[in-house]
């Protein structure tokens, strides 16, 4: 109704909202991983986009070489990427514990460039196709718009991942350790908790989420070495808006920013690429800790 009043066809409005929701799903899952990592390691993980890409490539190779389909990849690719993350944390990031944040940022940024560079060298910058799983082909016509099943699934999957991660952090013993470790890791360790192991697992989980987002993206965007490098900048803006290290903030802000981006495409298409950064700037001025962040 409102859409009619504003002279905008509902197909356009809802179509863009759905597209926005799908972008938002990726923002949410990726910024969730960044929030987990920032909380426990105090590192801004610039390798996140490259690890997302790794998740997509892992599903591609699982299919091409081992014949493992999308659903298998959905389980295996995050495990593979998580394992890669554990190696990175154990042998590289751990050496930076206790030094300025900036070093972690530089190291992960360098890692991203190296990983992406290697993939460009071996697979070229253009994308490799990944088929939509058979069960999710086609879609449903809602009358005012057509919703492809696969895109609906992406949104559902993202919501499941967000709810699961929230439950893990807020309702379990491991979650209590992670929250306590974010606040005061030395005291937690003095109580007898193996904080170095917890830190490794937190990084592994955070990058596994990036890997999972990569699998979800593969049928939509094609599998390309630089698929994460553009996305990750927006995701960092989302994390800043939500509040560094806030699990709830990352999930809610991710979905909301996707929708806002979609809406902007309807009303002022030229601004859609920058709207999230404008919001980030405003949030930084008014609430530097982010919408859901705790002011320390």
């Amino acid at each position: 109704m409102l859409a009619d009043l504003l002279g905008i066809p509902p197909q356009l409005l809802f179509g863009q909202l759905l597209l926005g929701l799908i972008s938002g799903a990726f923002y949410a899952v990726l910024s969730l991983g960044l929030a987990v990592i920032f909380g426990m390691l105090n590192i801004v993980n610039f390798a996140h986009g490259a690890l997302y890409m790794l998740g997509a490539f892992a599903s591609y190779f699982l299919l091409k070489i081992l014949g493992i389909n999308y659903w298998g990849a959905l389980i295996l690719a995050p495990i593979i990427v998580g394992a890669a993350g554990i190696v990175i944390e154990r042998f590289l990031l751990r050496r930076l514990a206790g030094v300025d944040h900036l070093y972690g940022l530089l190291l992960t940024f360098g890692l991203a460039l190296v990983i992406e560079g290697l993939f460009v060298k071996f697979f070229g910058a253009s994308g490799l196709p990944y088929p939509t799983p058979e069960a999710l082909k086609g879609g449903v016509n809602l009358g005012f718009m057509f919703v492809p099943w696969y895109r609906a699934w992406v949104v559902v999957a993202a919501v499941i991942v967000c709810v699961f991660t929230w439950w893990l952090f807020e309702r379990t013993k491991v979650g209590a350790y992670l929250r306590a470790g974010t606040e005061n890791p030395t005291l937690l360790q003095a109580f007898g908790v193996n904080v170095p192991l917890l830190t490794t697992l937190a990084y592994g989980y955070g990058v596994a989420l990036a890997g999972l987002a990569g699998v979800l993206a593969a049928p939509i965007t094609q599998v390309a070495p630089l698929m994460g490098s553009n996305l990750i900048i927006t995701v960092f803006a989302v994390v800043v808006i939500g509040g560094m290290g806030s699990i709830m903030g990352a999930a809610v802000t991710g979905l909301a920013m996707g929708m806002i981006e979609g809406l902007t495409k309807v009303f002022w298409p030229e601004a859609s690429a920058t709207v999230i950064f404008v919001i980030m700037a405003i949030v930084l001025v008014i609430r530097p800790a982010g919408l859901f962040g705790r002011t320390a």
């Binding site: 929250r179 606040e183 005061n184 360790q189 003095a190 007898g192 904080v195």
Partner: peptide, 24 residues
Amino acid sequence: SPPHTIAHLGLGYCPEERGIFASL
């Protein structure tokens, strides 16, 4: 010994600043 193994000898530590976790 790594710090997290020492407590398991039966040590309980109460720090001066109390160390109550705000997020719990």
